[in-house]
Write a protein that binds this DNA or RNA. Sequence first.
RNA 1: CGGGGACUAGUUCAUCGGUAGAACGCUCGCUUUGGGAGCGAGAAGCACAGGGUUCAAUUCCCUGGUCCCCGACCA
Length: 425
Amino acid sequence: MKYSQLFPKTLKQAPSGAESINHQLLVRGGFIDQLFAGSWTLLPLGLKVVTKINQIIREELNSSGAQEMQMPLLHPREIWDQTGRWSNKDVQQIMYQFKDIHGREFGLSFTHEEIVMNLLGKFVKSYKDLPLKLYQFSTKFRNELRAKSGILRGREFLMKDLYSAHVSEEDMYIYYEDVKKVYLKIFQRMGLDTKIVEASGGVFTDKNSHEFQVLTEVGEDTIYYCTQCDFAENKEIYQDREGSKCPRCSNKIEEANSIEVGNIFPLGTKYSKDMKVFYTDENGKEQLIWFASYGIGPTRVLGTLVEIYHDERGIIWPESVAPYQVYLVGLDLEGERVKGEAERVYKLLQAEGVEVLFDDRVGVSAGEKFADADLIGIPYRVVISKKTHSTSSGQAKDKLEVKKRDEKNTHFVSFKGLISLLKDS
RNA sequence: CGGGGACUAGUUCAUCGGUAGAACGCUCGCUUUGGGAGCGAGAAGCACAGGGUUCAAUUCCCUGGUCCCCGACCA
């Protein structure tokens, strides 16, 4: 991609009132744009990052045996009446509900348990049809009382939701535990260190759920975790406890702020019971389906990554989710030789399968290009200029000037050297 | 949904009762380029909407809207 073609360009100033880091940097870098409070466009750069996040999730879920699909976002009231959630006060706080011109009532999806259960009722007849693991990436609508923290809390956001159906509680928990491991791996591949934290089930279930929390000062959740074992609880359930000793190993409990990037719910048979969804067991008897759901918010992950990985100049993307691998800066592009060389390296990198953003702007100062490179946060910055490709002699001659975003020093390498650098990482 | 703040050029802000100004950005020249570079010119505004007070309102008052922050609630 040539930077001159990229939509949109970076901004020097953050929007007024933008306080959180992810809001400032993602907007300034041209990753996202706000339509109204809690509603964001994923611009080309932002979509690239989210696509990478999604791909990591997809790969790991697929290898856990899950299948991807896509469900509607517009839901008729009747299906939500089957579980009584349409009229639930807490649900009504966050679900957009409205009537069409004929008076028929609809809701916008904030989750899909009812829809999945409806689907299972149509297709799952026998124990032989189970277990099933189905997931999708889709927009979720939640009428948050207060959208805030940039893209971290929106009224419309992207979510990966996975649902599993099982013959028994035991089978459900086997997969539930699998997903814990899968989620840890997913987040780790994205560069996020997550803690599994026990929490309440909210409007989803009376049982407790597990949240995947990233520890950071700016997080809006408060969690309590043991410094020795893996005990961790959300504030909402921890506050009933006394003292500051771990209930499991008596070691010290720490309090920390965190961002919830994932949440998993062992729903049990509540939904299948309400919606009368059964399978036939080996003995020919009808049984309720055991059910669980699992969410990850890719757009929230996007914001979380920026909160964790940035410096005063801009974003520092982990390589696994960076929108491009290389930011190729062409300087002195008025000179034919340098320009030709920069174009050549751009094409060669692409031929090697390297994703490269080529700053081909003419008449833009070096400082501005470097500032943009730092703001956008692509892992490798490669500079081609008359210093390396025209008048020079010595070690820099015809070499590429390479700097990693998170390092200070530049060094000069050959094209082959750069490729092996990229392949190694 | 309670409390606070804001709304003026594309953006960030100044002005403050007498119909608007800067910086950045943008356009066009000239200059040249290693950390948001210089000079010059230009385009760009129903001052959120409605009502009131006043000879006169962007400015003061009221109502509504929107955005941001703090709380209560949540992927």
